[in-house]
């Protein structure tokens, strides 16, 4: 599943200043050399945790290539993320064992509950949802990493449990049955 909609949240004023300052320092280090586009993007992501659109525009302007080219590179490589990481990072394992034991169902449950597609962050930046290839504990499949803590043998009910544990409000049982929790 690909992120289809526009990222909704715009960075705030003071955030913009930080972005510009950090991007500037990285650009200086690589002398705005277009051949160093990937190291520049890596440097910016290391500083900011993600690649904001404003940063990509600034980079494109500095190294003098079309901004869509920067966007193309940013979306090509898995290592780059275009959404800010959430306060709580949820990583659903999609390795072979987890895939066979229903990793997809777990991912679907998170997507439905958080109302975001895989790879995105909730508008309040509380949660970000990602897939990972293998966590290294296949006997516990399906596995979810919640802020680097391993959750073993996860079931959709445990997904609700995890989110409840972070104080997220879930639709009541009646609604759940009627609307599959999509309402509200």
């Amino acid at each position: 599943m690909e992120p289809m909609e526009e990222p909704k949240e715009e960075p705030m004023e003071d955030e913009l200043e930080i972005i510009h300052a950090e991007v500037d320092s990285v650009l200086k280090r690589y002398e705005s050399n277009p051949e160093k586009l990937i190291p520049i993007l890596q440097g910016v992501q290391a500083k900011l945790g993600y690649l904001p659109k404003e940063a990509m525009l600034q980079i494109a302007d500095a190294v003098q290539i079309p901004e869509v080219e920067v966007y193309g590179v940013g979306t090509f490589y898995n290592q780059f993320r275009l959404n800010p990481p959430g306060k709580h990072q949820i990583k659903v394992c999609m390795g072979t064992a987890c895939h066979m034991t229903g990793g997809r169902i777990i991912m679907d449950s998170f997507e439905r509950r958080l109302e975001i597609p895989e790879g995105e962050t909730t508008p309040d930046r509380e949660f970000s949802l990602e897939r990972v290839a293998c966590v290294g504990c296949c006997a516990l499949a399906p596995v979810v990493l919640v802020d680097e803590e391993v959750e073993a043998k996860v079931r959709p009910t445990r997904v609700d449990g995890i989110l409840l544990g972070f104080g997220m409000e879930l639709p009541s049982a009646n609604n759940k049955q009627k609307e599959e929790g999509r309402e509200e």
Partner: peptide, 16 residues
């Protein structure tokens, strides 16, 4: 315009 993403998701699109 340019190519974005990779593999089956590759497509021609504008910035953002």
């Amino acid at each position: 315009i340019g190519f974005i993403r990779r593999g089956m998701s590759r497509k021609v699109a504008t910035f953002g």
